[in-house]
Design a protein around this nucleic acid. Structure first.
Length: 308
DNA sequence: CTCCAGGACACTT
DNA sequence: AAGTGTCATGGA
């Protein structure tokens, strides 16, 4: 057990798949996050924000200390406010003001395959259903882990391996994809591509490879369009310059920055056009980080959505 | 009841 | 080239 300053992390802001890490709210406003990473259980508690605690069943993960691991996993090395240049603050002072509570939002450096599959589950449906799908996926096909804590045993399921998903029966997988047969088949196919080595996700991390090239490779798979490919690059491949445009980004680009294209439906052409203009607003290296911060500010401050 | 949710794709004008 | 329908379900 050691101390790590979780005030610097907007924990609610980053968790999506809820499986590498899962957030749970217990009775008395005491929040706990725990999840399986590489077969090890990580727990973060912050009932009192002044004394948050990160602990694990194992001192070492991947040969690194837990603190080292967490620092990287939570992107503590990235300062999101650096994504916003002075020109942005001058031009959009009211937006900049609104963003202040969200500058600590961190993007998790999640596992590429998990990121790929979870975002394939997230097409045109709400967060609750997405979560449910991922939960079913892990419980049906993921390795089961049992940990004994002071409070009693906890059971967790790791995210399924590409092999496990590739050999899954698409009909059975329907339960994990909101009964959507097309999506189930696409996920099995993508998993097979990764398992066979035909789709080498690790290779797409290479900074030498242009963003465009990596995206093009991802989009070759059925069920992966521009948005999902950009999400995989941003959340799973640590490509912080990738700028995914979903329905919410589409909306705030129109409302906050008066992008005319935002009035039109989000076709491929509109998507690319919006993306080019958005990239000019931020530090190119951290455009995706900026987008994610804006995303949460938009959802909570404007749409009043209870995200997590 | 209608509308929209962290979309992608086929199909029609 | 640009718009519309389909897939699916739940919550507001």
């Amino acid at each position: 057990m050691f101390g790590i300053n979780l005030e610097k992390i907007d924990i609610e802001g980053s968790i999506f798949s809820g499986q590498s890490f899962r957030w749970e709210r217990t009775e008395n406003e005491h929040k706990t996050c725990h999840g399986v990473v590489d077969g090890k259980l990580l727990i973060i508690e912050y009932g009192n924000v002044n004394s948050p605690v990160l602990k694990s069943t194992s001192r070492l993960i991947d040969g690194k200390s837990l603190e080292e691991f967490a620092r990287r996993y939570f992107s503590l090395d990235i300062d999101g406010s650096n994504a916003f240049p002075e020109s942005f603050k001058r031009t959009y002072p009211e937006v900049w003001q609104l963003l202040q509570p969200y500058l600590q939002v961190k993007i998790l450096r999640q596992a590429p395959f998990e990121t790929l599959v979870t975002f394939m589950c997230a097409q045109g449906i709400g967060m609750n259903i997405i979560r449910r799908q991922v939960k079913h996926l892990t419980e049906k096909l993921g390795t089961r882990h049992r940990f004994v804590l002071e409070s009693g045993p906890i059971v967790y399921h790791a995210f399924p391996t590409p092999e496990a998903l590739a050999s899954a029966d698409p009909d059975a997988l329907k339960l994990c994809t909101n009964n959507n047969c097309i999506r189930a088949r696409n996920i099995v196919d993508a998993a097979a591509a990764v398992a066979s080595g035909r789709l080498d996700l690790e290779a797409l991390r290479d900074p030498e490879m242009p963003l465009e090239t990596a995206r093009e490779r991802l989009c070759r798979e059925r069920g992966i369009g521009l948005k999902i490919a950009d999400c995989v690059m941003l959340f799973g491949l640590q490509r912080f310059s990738a700028f995914p445009i979903d329905t919410h980004v589409h909306q705030y680009l129109g409302a906050w920055f008066s992008f005319g294209e935002a009035l039109k439906s989000l076709t491929g052409k509109t998507y690319l056009s919006l993306q080019r203009r958005a990239a000019e607003l931020f530090d190119p290296e951290l455009a995706g980080f900026a987008g994610h911060i804006l995303f949460h500010a938009w959802r909570k401050e404007v749409k009043r959505l209870q995200s997590f």
